[in-house]
Amino acid sequence: MSDPVGPLEWAAKAAFYCVAALTLLGGWFAVSQRNLFRAALGLALALFGVAVLYLFLQAEFLAVAQLLVYVGAILMLIIFGVMLTAGIADPAVPRWNRQAVGAALACGALAVGLVAAVLRAPWLAGAGKEFTLPLEALGRGLLGRYLLPFELLSLLLLGALIGALHIARKEKE
């Protein structure tokens, strides 16, 4: 969908920022919740947020892929993981480990640094003409120029599948 013009544009910008804020919130929950299930939900919120952002960036296929794969598959996996490992809600288990403070400082500094650098960086905004990528071009790309990574990815997934199965299998006594 091409860029709307005028007042509509300001609303879109506001929506965009709102979704961004929601994504961030979800991220924070995913990271901080003592109860892992809630953390998983936080992650879900964040994933949704990202999907919406893709839409804003006219990457529709990606948004759908995000929803299907990430939310549908990976999240489910994580939830199963949470379920299978006891103590998900045990309040006595401290949420952060010893180096939480240090980690927080480091990440805070990183964040500030990155954001400052990004905002001040002289992006080539508008150097190239903005253009949207027709889906059909993406498909041809995947099976054309990026055929090799595509095949490798399938191989990787197969390997991971077998590996995961083997590791998680219950040992025969």
Binding site: A20, T23, L24, G27, W28, A30, V31, S32, A46, L53, V93, P94, R95, W96, N97, Q99, A100, G102, A103, A104, A106, C107, G108, L110, A111, L114, V115, V118, L119
Partner: peptide, 18 residues
Amino acid sequence: ALSAGLFALGLFGALARR
């Protein structure tokens, strides 16, 4: 900037969560 924030949050989580 947004992705940087997200990235930092994730990193914090990786480092801090037990």
